[in-house]
Design a protein around this nucleic acid. Structure first.
Lengths: 190, 190
DNA sequence: CTCCTTTGCTAGCACCGCTAGAATATATTG
DNA sequence: CAATATATTCTAGCGGTGCTAGCAAAGGAG
């Protein structure tokens, strides 16, 4: 039954179209501009079609966030493996993280400030999600050893996250960004 | 003209009523449940009355947030001055910060994740806002001296903030909360 | 060529933040 | 005291939101 296969394939393509369009719209005009009506119009289908693919708007954001996690993980890995020196490696990862948050704010928002549909730190956590954390952990490991590695990584990550969100929402002066990153790295390098 | 005074006073009381009611509602049912309609009904006035006091819903949230900043500053100060030992003092401040974020999540949300109506790190930043940061800074000062004090405080604060937001949104396992706080303090104690 | 399932659509619900303009209450005059 | 002027508050409504019930069309099966 190749005809069935085609329909399944087409359905998958449409789902992809929804995710990609939602991301495009968000990147162009922010998440507030991504309404189910406007999204439906953009993909040239009616609103209810969206709900045959996703449980709701949050689920669409979560799907975009998942793309974000994959991309972030790739960039963190590149940064980590870009240097053999542990210090430089960790600095690179931190810089890459900051760069990602700065250049893809809409993605970062979906990943970390909205989209509670994603399960973290749990057995059924999607691999894309674990991977990014894994990269940070592996960058931290050479410096701190295996003692408390998980917890230390969490703190390092949370610090980065705090810096980025507070900067982005205007709570920290942007011009000191690099100095703050340097301080953070210094704190975690021993 | 004491009659004019009464009207001004009554107006202020009503403004206070709006802020307090908004806060109560948010604490009871979350910020999403605080709609202008429901809030107006609760204070037994019509919707437009809200807009004669505040520019919009965001401004009401900002007013609640301001209360939050004042309360947080008071608690941080109590924690800081509760011990003469710099280490214990900073630990106390960190714990107080975490405790505030945990027990008053709705306030914390208004202060740090929503409400962009408030100006941070600027000449016309409200004193309630500066004060909390000042408490953290003064707790950090004895440990790190005056070099880079501002920047180091920002990083410490951002780390705390990152820990709290990630924990609250289910991105970090709550059971390791204390260990993470300990790690953070250890990183900043030298 | 009908039957039936799947698919997609139209239309609408209940709600949102916000506001124009009417209506009511209060104060200031003649 | 009556009449006008000025605040103040309300009703009603605009244009939007996420989401869904129920109808219409399209497609494959007998």
């Amino acid at each position: 039954m190749p005809i069935q296969e085609r329909r399944v394939r087409e359905r998958m393509e449409r789902e992809r179209l929804i995710i990609d369009t939602a991301r495009q719209m968000a990147e162009a005009e922010g998440w507030d501009a991504v309404t189910t009506r406007r999204l439906a119009e953009r993909i040239e289908y009616s609103q209810p079609v969206l709900y045959s693919h996703f449980k709701g708007k949050d689920a669409i954001m979560a799907a975009v966030a998942l793309q974000g996690f994959a991309e972030m993980a790739a960039e963190l890995r590149a940064a980590r493996t870009g240097s053999t020196d542990p210090q430089t490696s960790l600095a690179g990862v931190a810089a890459a993280y900051a760069h990602f948050a700065e250049t893809r704010p809409v993605l970062y928002e979906a990943m970390f400030t909205s989209a509670v549909d994603l399960t973290f730190a749990s057995p059924d956590t999607p691999p894309e999600l674990r991977e990014g954390f894994g990269e940070i952990r592996e960058a931290v490991r050479p410096l701190v050893g295996d003692d408390d590695l998980e917890v230390r990584t969490e703190v390092f990550w949370a610090s980065l996250h705090g810096l980025m969100t507070l900067t982005r929402s205007g709570r920290l002066r942007p011009e000191d960004h690099d100095r703050r990153l340097a301080v953070l790295l210094h704190r975690f390098s021993d």
